[in-house]
Design a protein around this nucleic acid. Structure first.
Lengths: 338, 338
DNA sequence: ATGAAAGCGCTAACAG
DNA sequence: CTGTTAGCGCTTTCAT
């Protein structure tokens, strides 16, 4: 005697076929929307499907189609990124395209030593492809995936050039926007707080900022490196103020860091933007949480994430499709901090 | 002629068996760590597994075991929650237990009209169980899942009592902690900003605060309802100040809202904590981002999320296991805002 | 246009 | 302790 209240065994194709008085194949065709089915039969079958409450078994389908119907979102390390608003935005953008398609979004991490797991998930058929976010130069994962010819999309330009599909914002142009804005305000002494220079995003923002600043006549731009976190921004700000007390214009390479830096300025008695102008990068929620609201370079993270999902899905559909790079244009959002 | 550089067809049990000179069953036993295998054979097989680069096909396994090896994390609506630091903390806590077990974490949403999808995923065998976060009273999903006898764990006490497993923090006790702290400071006039009262979390925090405040002799505690967001906190603060200008102690039911409220106070010329003491709830990153750092009621979200995952996995293992509720104790974290 | 039959890769009785 | 056998539920030729 089975347990009480147990779930009725889900209907199978076989049962639907019996109810409809047709073969499994026909039901399968109806379920998968194959055109070559007699209209009348199709209706009979549809009724049977409803009557039995049939719902296809994914494992069985996957076994024969060799498709998991799932993609992975691979987080870099343990969990630092989980506290970054960037994470939620990426998830939102990806889900906007996967959800309507019935594709599952699986969260994975590639903490040191776990990269093999990602490859295994792909090879085991648990995942059809992966989106890698925030990889740094030393990360072996992109190479591993390329070599295994597995579908992958990067969330940023790879550190070393490689044949891989990626989506990015034009970091150089974004930093340049910030630079011009600061120069236009006739700042006297400008500086920048960067992200980890092991990432292309941080490196490009620094390069772009310095280049444009040099063009505008500012040749000695002090840079302090931080880690894209809130506290990192605060610490870097302290250091910067110590090294360069007369700074009156600063480009901080992420809103989260800027948000951490502002209270430090206030504590030092510096008014924003009167005594020092601040420009951030991202246009994520911390920008609005800043006091005063942060002038920042907007990158359309949700759109970028959606594009990554689309590219990945396309690559899964046709693995022979050539790799590509999609670069979004940043814009300057002027608020009150500069 | 197949495409160049294509992935070599992954090895199957069959092939490993051939290489090792044994039967599929034996290889399967070795792979699954069944004890009853001769030590010598086990080694031969292990070598063959390595040699062939074998990795089990999950779809095939799922088909026979009727286990997906995946659980779902169901987000309430479209994406409001994605911007809340709470989201990342939950993900982190859940992954801490799923990752070592090789269980996949699938992100799902239950936006209006999509609840059926969740049930379907479960019945199709794509998901073994789900964790529901932030459900409100009108959400039909918990009931649907209970009625279908599917493994589910709630991230908060259900609005109406039902036989369901859930994890929560003792909201009443947490709010009481905040109340005592404010009373101990001899505040003259206290108030509170609540979350959406359609959730048990918000309701309980309000009740707990009012009850304890009454015990301490404060009988008219003004409450303004907000929505747990940053802007919601700011708006509510404005309203509160208008309705109750002499307030000098306030309990704000989430750090994110408190973070939105502080700039409003500053703008009104009110110093924290000198003119008004502020206590938050959560102890999430915004608490530290506040200026001054926020005194708040800590709820151990990561631990709670890990516990949810454990309970869910247990329930999946043995569906007959009775439902249970685990309630964590909150603590008061005293910083500078009160 | 439909059905019959084969088989995807694996686990789980059941014999031996 | 090991091998044989029988499916799990589905898609997909291949005939008809």
């Amino acid at each position: 005697m089975p347990e009480p209240r147990s779930i009725p065994a889900p209907a199978t194709l076989e049962e639907v076929a019996r109810v409809a008085g047709v073969s499994r194949s026909t039901v399968s065709r109806v379920v998968n929307g194959v055109a070559t089915v007699d209209e009348e039969l199709r209706e009979t079958v549809t009724r049977a499907i409803v009557a039995t409450g049939y719902t296809p078994n994914r494992a069985a389908r996957s076994l024969v189609t060799r498709r998991a119907g799932a993609i992975g979102l691979v987080l870099p390390d343990e969990g630092r990124m989980l506290g970054d608003p960037y994470f939620g935005r990426v998830v939102g953008g990806v889900m906007d395209v996967t959800r309507p398609l019935g594709v599952q979004l699986v969260l994975t991490s590639a903490a040191a030593g776990t990269q093999q797991q990602v490859v295994a998930d792909l090879r085991q058929g648990r995942l059809d492809g992966v989106i890698l976010i925030h990889t740094h130069g030393a990360d072996p994962l992109p190479r591993m995936l390329i070599d295994s010819n597995l579908p992958v999309v990067l969330a940023a330009r790879p550190v070393r050039p490689m044949p891989i599909t990626y989506v990015d914002v034009d970091q150089l142009a974004g930093a340049s926007l910030a630079a011009h804005h600061l120069a236009d305000r006739d700042c006297y002494r400008v500086a920048t707080i960067t992200g980890p220079v092991s990432t292309t995003a941080a490196m490009d923002r620094l390069t772009g900022f310095r280049t444009t600043m040099a063009e505008r006549g500012y040749h000695d731009v002090v840079a302090v490196e931080a880690d894209f976190t809130h506290e990192g921004g605060a610490t870097a700000m302290e250091e910067l103020l110590a090294r360069c007390p007369d700074v009156d214009g600063i480009f901080i390479a992420s809103d989260l860091m800027a948000h951490g830096a502002l209270p430090v300025l206030r504590r030092h008695g510096l008014r924003v933007p009167d005594d020092i102008a601040v420009v951030g990068f991202d246009d994520s929620s911390p920008a609005l949480a800043c006091d005063p609201p942060l002038t920042t370079v907007r990158q359309p993270v949700e759109d970028m994430a959606a594009e990554m999902a689309r590219l990945l899905l396309g690559r899964i559909e046709r693995p022979d499709r050539p790799v590509s790079a999609v670069v979004f244009e940043p814009t300057l959002v002027v608020r009150q901090s500069a």
